[in-house]
Structures are given as structure tokens and as C-alpha cells.
Design a binder for these strands. Structure first.
Length: 164
DNA sequence: GCCAACGTTGGC
DNA sequence: GCCAACGTTGGC
């Protein structure tokens, strides 16, 4: 038995990131410089911690949330590791956090870059797919804006649109 | 706008 | 450290 059974630390991970189309749609992202956006505004420790775990090249589903047609709208990749969120110190921002100090920032975020837009995979379609029953965002009461996605779930979602 | 579910706050 | 009150999320 060798030590070769463990996975390389560089294996890309999969995530799902919820965004509100009111702020940035997948098409908005496509039109930004470098098709890249800083994922600012996360104010939940669990979601922040997931961003800290992200590595360059990890892939994420870009999910449209709080809108008429919620669902997966595209794929993005992590293009910059977590760094302090400037909006927490901006008193005019809706993400301002008076309790966070510049010498000890509470909130961080990654940057994400568009990989490809997908035909919208609606929340209803996700719910109708038995193989996705354990997908985190489909669990009762789940509100986390950033969640890990199992490899099998990632592949299953892509099967829904015959990409892979 | 409703409301279930969950996270955060703060008094004790 | 408990827990009630309050705020937020997010689909419907």
C-alpha cells in the first residue's frame, strides 16, 4: 500500500454561489472587464469560510436568486483568492459593518470569472431531478448563499443540459 | 406581501 | 451559556 490513494491537493472543487439579478446577472458578468466580478457583500460567516477554502480554478455554478426565474445561469471560476471586502468599511454601502475594523476585517470575498453561460436550469427542474435530492440548496430551510457541490451533483446538473 | 427557517444579538 | 426577540433570506 502506497500513499498514492489520497487525492492531490490541487483537485478543483465545485461550489454554488447565489447572486441577485438585480445586482449582477450572468449577462452583466459577461459584459464586465475580464468578465470578472468581486463577490462582495457576503455577511454570513459560514459562506465567508467557504470562500476562504476556495482555490484558484475551482468552479462554481452562478445561481440567480430572489428573482422571477431562480436557477443556475452559468459557470464561473475562482480567479482571485479571498481578500478583505472593502464595502464593509464604506458607511454609504448597504454592506457597511460598523463593527468591523480595518486592522481586523471580518468579511472577505473571492473574485469570479465567467467560464460559460448556460441555458437557465430552473429551481423547479433541479427539484424534479431525483439524483439531485441531496443538493444543499434544495434542502429544507437552506439559505446559505455559498455552498459546496459534490462532484456527482455537479455532473448531474450538466447532464440536464447535455453538456460534459 | 406572506411566512418558514435560520442566524445574530444582547440581557440575564 | 441560555434563549427570547429580532432581522434576514428567498421561494411562492
Amino acid at each position: 500500500m502506497t500513499a498514492a490513494t489520497s487525492k492531490p491537493p490541487t483537485a478543483p472543487k465545485f461550489w454554488l454561489m447565489k447572486g441577485e439579478p438585480d445586482e449582477c446577472t450572468i449577462d452583466d458578468l459577461a459584459n464586465l472587464p475580464n468578465q470578472t466580478v468581486p463577490w462582495t457583500g457576503v455577511r454570513n460567516y459560514q459562506a465567508r469560510n467557504f470562500m476562504r477554502e476556495m482555490r484558484l480554478g475551482d468552479l462554481a455554478f452562478f445561481y440567480h436568486s430572489s428573482c422571477p426565474e431562480p436557477g443556475i445561469a452559468g459557470i464561473v471560476q475562482i480567479s482571485r483568492l479571498a481578500y478583505p471586502d472593502a464595502t464593509q468599511f464604506d458607511a454609504k454601502s448597504k454592506y457597511f459593518d460598523a463593527k468591523s475594523k480595518p486592522e481586523a476585517p471580518r468579511w472577505e470575498h473571492v473574485d469570479v470569472q465567467l467560464v460559460r453561460k448556460l441555458p437557465l436550469i430552473s429551481l423547479a427542474t433541479l427539484r424534479e431531478t431525483p439524483a439531485l435530492a441531496d443538493l444543499t440548496i434544495l434542502q429544507r430551510g437552506n439559505r446559505l448563499s455559498i455552498t459546496p457541490v459534490d462532484t456527482v451533483h455537479w455532473e448531474q446538473v450538466l447532464k440536464l443540459i447535455a453538456i460534459n
